[in-house]
Design a protein around this nucleic acid. Structure first.
Lengths: 341, 341
DNA sequence: CTGTTAGCGCCTTCAA
DNA sequence: TTGAAGGCGCTAACAG
């Protein structure tokens, strides 16, 4: 293996010598060019170019007590919901000089706490955490964190610092209302994973169904297992075994909705005539199914870009007034799976 | 904002004072405990516990010229193929003391090169890069990188350092062979993105179809746009417009296959009787469609765990003999979408 | 606008 | 097995 060729790094001092200035001047032309005269700047830049200088992050972090690493804590990497968020984050981070470290806490609060500690000891420039339901210990850690913190994917009245998300409750209310408005009367709920955001959706469903007098707890089918297309079929089967006259289902997410649709197809149940299906998240696939699936579109990508933008700005001018929290909207997309009238 | 409470970190020296030893002894009890006597070790550990000491990564990196950060370069974060890899990587990294930084180069070789440079300046402990088709410059950078490098997702005879992947060519050959064996005679190919691994799949398809005398270039439909379910429907439409008597399609991946299936359904084309469909990757969804989709299963999660394990071991004992490359198998999963006979 | 002086917290090397 | 000395490369705080 012809690897491990240890190569000597070019240092600030060498650049300084080459340019005939002091090290700090080189440092300044890199970090705040307008503090340096144009002539010197040019010389220094030439020297940097010539020598192929690249700053040492470790040294910089040690001296400045600051890094350019942003920690991102998510409960899942498989869930396509979070890959959309990730994509948004990376689209903004790109070219910002920051880099991202991801922690996957797998829906485990204790793991989240540990990861938080791991991140914190790296003096992160900022932190993005999914959800608003951290443990007390985690909240305390975040409150005193020496960097801006953004909570994402949900909204609440007591943000730790910055926040950007949307209301899962409201989304579920809208979807449920639509099913009722379309004339469905015996509504079921299919839910998997049942993390806090899923719970909020169930709460929204329940409130709206009760308000309209069509709530029936025997039609609520949930599991703590992860969501999947297969699980959607499974849950629909369970529901129909228990309450065969159910005429519509609000699904926790589009994977379940798709699975329910395929199961209905297998059972020769006519969707939307005999069974209405509403999903959540509006994944790309939903638009292309037969029938296409009505779903509550959520701004996942926008949460990612928005969170990273908030963080970038908070890191840049630490004193600036910041919007403490941003509430993004959700939108019901009506499609074929719920067209009863 | 009651944030920015700057808290003083506990340092090695403070722990040393507390334990009544020197700083270096504390450092040693942390990094190589067996170089320290049991009695001292105990005292030091107590002091660490008491003071809540956490090592400063920047200082450590600066002094040792080493970090615990592994760089991971992927072409996409949306593609579920890579989220499975990510999951595998994180499952192994978890508790290894390493952390991962992800770079998303969006299928752009030049961007990949830039990200590589960005990573390299952080003295990473190791690097994982997707694919085997780096630019010459990138290859050079990787060859001389002062850390182990793992190429993933593909196999070749000229690994840069370590490698773990599977043959896209072979997978496509298997899928194509199956279609022919089932009695389909006018085979089409649907491909999106057409990155190097997609190209390899097309090559496998072409070789097998030619070998069996059923190759017809007018049935090859590709696009450089990203893959999606919608795109699968689109491409099938294009194919049928151009070659209406096509009786089977090999799809670049399962998203396209699903889209093709839904489009066939819309056109009242009987799958598998009048149109056979074979996908690639075997996503969870494929098993649950009606009919379920025949697909080539790829060990994406295993690539992730395997890559990280290779790296972990290479980082740990730098001198150990390492398996230079691992070729994982793919498996054809026969399902309803190709049952002609 | 530019430079000097001192570390940041840890690890390497050498000595005991 | 333990310690002392010095430095990694950079930047903060001051001077000029």
């Amino acid at each position: 293996m012809e690897k491990n060729i240890k190569y000597k790094r070019v240092t600030l001092n060498e650049v300084a010598a080459e340019a005939g200035v002091s090290a700090i001047t080189v440092s300044r032309t890199i970090r705040s060019p307008d503090m340096v005269s144009a002539g010197v700047r040019k010389k220094v830049k030439a020297a940097i170019e010539l020598l192929g200088y690249v700053p040492d992050q470790a040294a910089s972090a040690l001296a400045s007590e600051r890094t350019n690493v942003v920690g991102l804590l998510v409960p899942s990497l498989t869930n396509s919901v979070f890959s959309d968020v990730l994509r948004g984050v990376y689209d903004v981070v790109d070219g910002s000089g920051l880099s991202v470290q991801i922690g996957n806490f797998r829906y485990s609060p204790s793991k989240e706490e540990n990861l938080l500690r791991t991140f914190l000891r790296q003096r992160p420039a900022g932190l993005i955490v999914a959800g608003i339901d951290q443990t007390e210990a985690a909240r305390a850690l975040l409150k005193t964190a020496p960097c801006p913190v953004v909570q994402i994917m949900d909204v609440s009245d007591s943000p730790i610092d910055l926040m950007i998300g949307f209301s899962h409750y409201d989304g579920a209310v809208e979807g449920t209302r639509h099913l009722i408005d379309e004339g469905y009367k015996r509504l079921g709920f299919l839910g998997a994973r049942m993390d806090p955001r899923s719970q909020a959706r169930l709460a929204g469903f329940t409130a709206e169904a009760q308000g309209r007098g069509v709530y029936d707890s025997s039609r609520i089918i949930t599991t703590t297992h992860p969501s999947s297309v297969g699980m959607g079929g499974q849950l629909l089967s369970d529901l129909l075994a228990q309450a065969p006259d159910t005429d519509a289902v609000f699904c926790n997410n589009d994977d379940l909705a798709a699975g329910a649709l395929f199961e209905a197809e297998r059972r020769r149940i006519n969707v939307p005539k005999d069974l209405g299906i509403c999903g959540f998240n509006d994944l790309e696939m939903s638009r292309h199914l037969n029938p296409s699936i009505t779903s509550v579109a959520t701004p996942r990508y926008e949460v990612g870009t928005g969170a990273m933008a908030l963080l970038r700005d908070a890191i840049a001018d630490r004193a600036a007034i910041r919007t403490p929290h941003i509430r993004l909207g959700v939108e019901l997309i009506k499609r074929g799976s719920t067209k009863r009238r």
